[in-house]
Design a protein around this nucleic acid. Structure first.
Lengths: 201, 201
DNA sequence: CCTACCGATCGGTAGG
DNA sequence: CCTACCGATCGGTAGG
């Protein structure tokens, strides 16, 4: 019973699914530059060499396109940041690996327009609705994982710890994006090392 | 000679200047919610009960409206954050006052849509041009002042220090804006106190 | 500061 | 997946 309640994917497989995946890859990059509002169907279609209505048919509404784009960005974040850290033992080693890979992901241009999550969360924090909820859930997952690892590592205040790690990384992203100075990543690494040094050993 | 090179204000004084000031107050709030792209002339005019073209005439282009809005936001930041801290002695006391007033300004809704600077810097970091330059200059001034006070307070790395203060405050803003949890301001205050405690006394 | 208008682009639809 | 089209809204202009 439970299985049958799963929503069937709009695109089962084959060419349609490939096209959809290609659209979403572009959509994530475009949204990281222009935002999820600036992600217009016409511009996206032009970049992909297809018609507006052809692209539109894959999603049915702009909102569905935006939600699918948030999902694709979550996948990319997982591959770039979470997965590489999974080989490290839970607790302090995992935390160190996550902090490293998240800074690397900001530095090396995983998203062409800087961090998708930083851009879209600032854009949507005042726009209630399912798109905002999806972005918020993605960030909550990230902070929750940081807090979980901090707790395993023995932190007495895992939520505060997660907040500080998050703040340092997102601060480095926004400063780097505006000033272009890579020095901020050095500052961020120093701050993270000091923070990790607070944990019991 | 030097005085005459100053650019004459577009609106000298009187009723025109008052209208312009009222427009910009609204524009700052609207932009803190919708962004500086979402700040459309039509919507702003409707909110103020005036015609699009009447409002438009005050600025001549959307870009000029955006630049004037950034200037008005800088004024509001100055009044809310910098000015209240000026009574504190330079160095550690000033730094403590600035950190306090900046967190208070995020918590008490100085801008109706959360921090104008956080919202617009994320929006414009990939949009080269004078608007981006104005936002960037405003943030550079803020970080520069933090670094200047950190240096006076005896920090060996004032730029790193300023970065960390900035990151904590901006992280608190973005987490509060998305999650609504005031606990982040407590985390931020703890982090700032720890940071200020690093300074020589 | 207004009415009346412009070309371009938006999300979305009809019909194939 | 396409062409052809829709009503609404965008920034901006003409003329007063």
């Amino acid at each position: 019973m439970a299985v049958t309640t799963e929503r069937a994917p709009r695109e089962p497989a084959g060419k349609g699914a490939e096209t959809r995946a290609a659209i979403l890859e572009r959509a994530v990059d475009l949204a990281s530059v222009e935002g999820l509002e600036g992600l217009t169907i016409g511009r996206l279609a032009t970049q992909l060499g297809m018609s507006k209505s052809g692209l539109f048919a894959h999603f049915g509404s702009k909102r569905e396109l935006q939600l699918a784009t948030v999902g694709a960005a979550a996948q990319r974040f997982w591959v770039a940041v979470i997965e590489p850290a999974l080989s490290a033992e839970e607790g302090l080693p995992r935390l160190r690996a996550l902090a490293h890979s998240s800074l690397a992901y900001l530095d090396n241009g995983t998203f062409s327009g800087g961090c998708f999550w930083a851009a879209t969360s600032a854009e949507y924090d005042d726009r209630p609705g399912p798109v905002r909820d999806a972005i918020s859930a993605g960030l909550d997952t990230w902070l929750g994982e940081l807090a979980r690892q901090a707790k395993i590592a023995g932190s007495a205040e895992p939520d505060r710890f997660a907040f500080e790690l998050y703040a340092i990384a997102s601060g480095a992203n926004s400063r780097f994006r505006l000033s272009g100075e890579r020095a901020v990543f050095g500052y961020a690494r120093a701050a993270i090392d000091r923070l990790l040094g607070e944990l019991p050993r």
